[in-house]
Write a protein that binds this DNA or RNA. Structure first.
Length: 233
DNA sequence: AATCGGCTCAACCGCTATTGT
DNA sequence: GACAATAGCGGTTGAGCCGAT
């Protein structure tokens, strides 16, 4: 259908970004905002496609990105969120302040997946694989009961979201200035929990603000209880 | 010192979802 | 409602790094 090709083949640069390109992109976004990514490269004097610019910005140049090693808390949060959400990296990223979905995805594939396999846990189902000792079984049973509890919450949450979405259609609720419709289930407590996560690793401050970013488009807000339950571990 | 293999992560690719006309 | 344009997502790739031999 109307999908545009990734990049028009004609003379657009690919591959690693140079500091000069980064500077151009940063300077442009600083001055004008990104606006339409499609139009941005030519306006900013970049020989890149808009998609490449967007990716560079969201995964690397954004000022609200924390780089470097994942803390233990972040690691645990990813494991638990992955158990619930699966490979929905952007959804997981919404609960990890300053981390991009790409970064989380990479970390999962290179570290956490292997770690779980080593521990005898299936990284897809998060259930123990065959040939495990009793200790593993006990631990996983605890985990499974928590997960089934969380699954119930997820069902309830989805139903509530659907209901509210219908209500919004009938009687639209004024949204925030960014125009983004906040999920009613996204709570300040959840936000605080995420801040707690960031704080543990020494980069507190705030959640990624509205604006660009991979996590911005969809809000997979969770009820307080679920996040509380996660983050107690 | 050379080279080989594994690991990491930035970036690409192809797809779907959303928005605008 | 149909179509086009754009944004966003998740899987995959490959260059570069680093430790082992």
């Amino acid at each position: 259908m109307g999908r545009s090709p990734y990049c028009d083949s004609s003379g657009l640069k690919k591959g690693p970004w140079t500091p000069e390109e980064d500077h151009k992109l940063l300077a442009y976004i600083h001055q004008h905002g990104h606006g339409s990514w499609r139009a941005l490269p030519s306006k900013a004097g970049l020989e890149r496609c808009g998609k490449s610019c967007r990716l560079r910005w969201t995964n690397y140049l954004r000022p609200d990105i924390k780089r470097g090693k994942f803390s233990l808390q972040e690691e645990q949060a990813i494991e638990q969120l992955h158990a619930l959400l699966g490979n929905r990296w952007s959804a997981i990223a919404t609960h990890l302040p300053k981390r991009t979905d790409n970064e989380i995805k990479n970390y999962w594939n290179t570290h956490l997946k292997k770690k779980l396999i080593k521990m005898g846990i299936d990284p897809i189902t998060h259930k123990p694989m065959k040939n495990n000792n009793e200790e593993m079984k006990v631990k996983s049973n605890m985990n499974n009961s928590t997960l089934s509890h969380m699954a119930q919450w997820e069902t309830a949450r989805l139903e509530a979201e659907e209901r509210l979405a219908r209500q919004h259609k009938i009687q639209p609720i004024p949204s925030s200035s960014s125009g983004r419709v906040e999920s009613p289930t996204t709570s300040s407590t959840a936000t605080e929990n995420c801040q707690h996560l960031a704080g543990e690793s020494g980069v507190a401050d705030d959640l990624p603000s509205s604006g660009s970013g991979s996590a911005e488009s969809k809000n997979y807000g969770w009820p307080d209880t679920i996040l509380d339950e996660f983050l107690r571990f």
